[in-house]
Every structure is written in structure tokens, then in C-alpha cells.
Simulated assay, not measured.
Amino acid sequence: MLVACSQGGSASSAASGSASAASGSSDSSASSASAGATAGSSASSGLRSVSFVLDYAPNANHTGLYVAQEKGWFAEEGIDVQFVPVPADGSDALIGTGGADMGMTYQDYIANSLGSATPMPYTAVAAVVQHNTSGIMSRAEDGITSPAKMAGHRYATWNLPVEQATIKKLVEQEGASYGDVQTVPYEVEDDVMGLQANLYDCVWVYEWWAVANARLQNYPVNYFAFRDIDPVFDFYSPVIAVNDKFAEENPDVVKAFLRAAKRGYEFAAEHPQEAADILCGAVPELNRALIAEAQDILSPLYIADAPSWGVIDDARWSRFYQWINDENLTEKAFDPSSGYTMQYLD
């Protein structure tokens, strides 16, 4: 549930990192009113229409896109971007089937397709954020400051192979037993509320959303990031992907989209609060205070240590996929370097 774009009120979990980082769940409540232009506007303006499906309700992962829309940078590139709310089954199928030309997803979701008997024809073309911003959040009083300390506590799980294998590896490489981690179903819409209600002791979240949410509520939590513990889990989340047929037939359009998006994310990296205002102006039901907190955390990571926005490093991409292969987490093994290309990013 989204709350009013204001300085007050409790923060919601409309873009809850845990729900989108590892579960495969999505929120179809993203309003069609957040689309940047009305249907049919391309015909009158002479712009090339591009449909882009979000991965979740609008949030700070999308700020650069809304900045590019507001600043007119997509239009300067000759394209009219239509933001499409994410369907109940997520963005991947819509991109893969051509129901959307482009969209946002995650490296681990693409792995599920690559490792299936019938991979979907879509490819990542840019990294939105340079480092994995997810990890484990827990009540401060419980002292869960590392994976090993999850033993003896309740972890909220989605019962997904990659998710549980990740937790198992992190817990056991610190000498604890994954069998000592009690798993309970993840059945909440607000990660902080779940801790407050004692439904679980620890949960997989995005720092920039859930930890920021806790901070706004003055609720003390511990948090550790997966990327700080094992470089295997510094995967790309999220990424921009394109339908392969669309890219093959419209390579210049894909390049134009990424040029404008790059400008948007560069602006958001340099001007986080102005960018937050633009996002909140486009989607007024968002909580302004939470977006401000989230933007301060996320903006430095849009580019971080990469040479420029959007770059995907093959070593990091392949390292995560090789681990998935080694653990037999998909139906079949696949090329660890597959699933992405840098050919459209200037």
C-alpha cells in the first residue's frame, strides 16, 4: 500500500526490497497514471513509442527514468516512453513475450529463464545500480549482526531455491548450521511491521527501502549487506532488459532509450533530493520522507566505482551465475556470461 507523498505518516512497503529482491513477487498497484504520456501521443508528436514495464510500484530504483521523462530527454532522443505497471507475475514474462519492449528486472530472475528448458528471448542491457543493495534486517535487540547469528532465530522465507541457497551458503561459511535457522513464511507487506509484530526475527530486504523505513519510524534494527560478506552475492539488482526481437529490429531506439536513461540516473546521482522531488511529483502517492531517505542511500550507487552508469562487469555477472550452476539451482546449466550485452550502451 502506498501512502500520500508527504513528510508525515508511516512508510509503506510498496517497493519493499525483500519482496522484489528474492521472492519473485510483485505489486500491480503501480498506477497507470504514472505513465509519462497518454496513449496515442506518439502519433501526433512523431516520436517513436517505447513501452517499459516496471518491476514494482514506482520507487527509487526508477528515479532516473522519471527524471529523464520530466526533463524531456527521452523526447530529445525521439522516443515517447510509456511506463507500464508490473503485472501480477512480474515483468520478465511481459518483456520476454514482447508485451513490453523493455523493462526492469534482476540478474537472478534472468537466471531462472536462462536455466530453463525454454529460455525467454530477452537480455539485460544496463545495470541500474552498481552493487547489490540487499541484505538481512533484524531487530537490534536480537543481536543478529552476521549470517551465523541467524541460527536459533526465525527467518522469513519465500521457499525459493536461489534465496534459500544464498542464506545457507552465508550461514554455513561462517561455521553455523543452516538447519538451526528456523524458516517461517514471508506473509507481510511491510518488513518493519513484521519485525514489530514479532512475525519473524530477520528478513531479506533492500537497505535503501526497508532500513530507511525503520529509520523514519525510529525503530532500531541491525542490517548486514550480502555484498560485504561474499563477493558472489554482489550481483546486479536491478537491470534494464530488452525484448530480443525489439532490439534486433530497433537497435537505435534501444541506444536512444539508454542515452536518455543514463542522463536521468547521472542527474539523480548528482542531485538526489531534486531527483526525489521529480519522482514524487510524477507519483504523488509516494511517501516523500521515505523517498528522500531512499534516494540518499541509493543515488551514490547508481554509478559508484563503475566507469559510467549502466556498465555491467562480466567478472561479477559471471561469478554469480557460475555459483548458480555449481549449486544446480536451475533446471539446466547455462553459460555464466550469457543474459546480458553492452552493445547498446554508449
Rank of each mutant, 00 (worst) to 15 (best):
M1C: 11
L2W: 12
A4S: 15
C5H: 15
G9V: 08
S12K: 13
S12Y: 09
S13K: 12
S20E: 15
S23K: 09
D27N: 10
D27A: 03
A30E: 01
A30W: 05
S32M: 14
A35Y: 12
A35C: 14
G36N: 11
A37F: 13
A39I: 14
S42A: 15
G46R: 04
R48F: 12
F52D: 04
D55R: 13
N61S: 11
T63S: 11
T63V: 14
A68K: 03
A68D: 08
E76H: 02
E76K: 06
E77Y: 00
V86R: 05
D89Q: 15
L94C: 07
T97Y: 09
G98E: 08
A100K: 11
A100M: 14
D101G: 04
M102N: 02
M104R: 10
S116A: 06
V125D: 07
A126Q: 01
Q130I: 10
T133P: 10
T145F: 07
A148M: 09
A148S: 14
A151I: 01
A156C: 11
T157I: 02
E163M: 10
I167N: 00
L170N: 02
G175Y: 06
G175M: 09
Y178L: 06
G179E: 10
G179Q: 09
V181R: 01
E189L: 13
M193C: 11
M193F: 12
M193Q: 15
V203K: 10
V203G: 10
L216A: 08
Y219C: 07
N222V: 07
Y223K: 03
F233K: 01
D234W: 04
Y236N: 00
E248Q: 13
P251I: 02
V253D: 03
F257G: 00
R259N: 05
A260S: 03
R263G: 03
E266Y: 00
F267C: 04
A268I: 01
A275W: 00
D277Q: 10
I278R: 00
C280N: 14
C280M: 13
P284T: 04
E285H: 12
L286I: 06
N287D: 13
A289Y: 12
I291V: 14
Q295S: 15
P307E: 06
W309Q: 03
W309T: 02
V311T: 05
I312Y: 02
D314M: 12
R316P: 04
W323Q: 03
D326P: 01
K332Q: 09
A333P: 08
A333T: 14
D335I: 04
P336A: 00
S337A: 08
L345E: 02
D346C: 01
